[in-house]
């Protein structure tokens, strides 16, 4: 009986020792991967930051209106943000590799999944950036045109259009990430439909006179604000 217990203990110890002997090199390898990965990720962050600085990326971001959004959201500058994103992508890649090296059953296939996710993530970022770019373009053009056309509430109109375009961009980006796609799309469709219906009702009923004035102004070529006295200017 005692012998059997001792054998079991020895067997158990032997299994543990074997497993430990097998695990330690993997742990060391994972630690090395993590350390090297962290160093590489930091290097990538520095390189990306400097590269973007040399390309005046912050100015480009300011031009498309992204800087203002980042400032409001209390996020770092566009250059730093992209550099940090690059750092985290690289670092998480190495972390996943390190975990995979440990060969835990629950994390099997994690590397493969991660590297499938990265392109989608980058594409989502691109879609988001284009959304900001196009949204700002629409905002600027609408603001200038509606001011010179004498439309009331030019700023509000331009801001709403920008918000709409950016919202579409965000939804498309989330779709790329495949995050709660059905919920996001449904919520967006309902919100968008409700907004348009609300606007149509408000404009058609509440703003009937304004609508008539605008249409008359457009089709009867009535001079817009400040244009009746063009002669003396020339």
């Amino acid at each position: 009986m005692i012998q059997e217990i001792a054998d079991a203990l020895v067997e158990s110890w032997r299994n543990f020792a074997d497993a430990f002997v097998q695990f330690v090199p993997r742990l060391v390898a994972a630690t090395i991967i993590l350390a090297v990965g962290t160093a590489i990720a930091m290097l990538v962050r520095i390189v990306v930051h400097r590269l973007l600085a040399s390309l005046h990326f912050d100015k480009m971001a300011a031009r498309i209106g992204a800087s203002e959004m980042l400032r409001v959201a209390e996020l770092p500058s566009a250059e730093l943000l992209v550099a940090k994103i690059a750092f985290w992508i690289v670092w998480i890649g190495f972390v996943v590799s390190a975990i995979d090296t440990l060969q835990f059953g629950a994390f099997q296939g994690l590397v493969e999944q991660f590297f499938h996710f990265v392109p989608r993530f980058l594409l989502a970022l691109l879609v988001l950036a284009l959304g900001f770019l196009f949204g700002n373009f629409v905002w600027r053009a609408t603001l200038i045109t509606s001011v010179n056309a004498g439309l009331p509430g030019a700023r509000l109109l331009a801001a709403m259009l920008r918000l709409l375009v950016i919202a579409i961009g965000v939804v498309m980006a989330l779709e790329q990430l495949r995050l709660a796609t059905a919920v996001v799309l449904t919520a967006f469709a309902i919100a968008f439909g409700a907004l348009m219906l609300g606007l149509a009702i408000a404009f058609g009923l509440g703003g009937r006179d304004a609508a008539r004035d605008l249409l008359e102004q457009h089709f009867k070529a009535k001079p817009t604000r400040g244009d009746s006295d063009v002669g003396p200017h020339l």
Binding site: N148, T224, G226, D227, D229, V230, G231, H233
Partner: peptide
Amino acid sequence: TSGAGLRATLREAVQ
């Protein structure tokens, strides 16, 4: 001559 015959609006003219 006056600009009375001008068909553009002031804003269009400036632009």
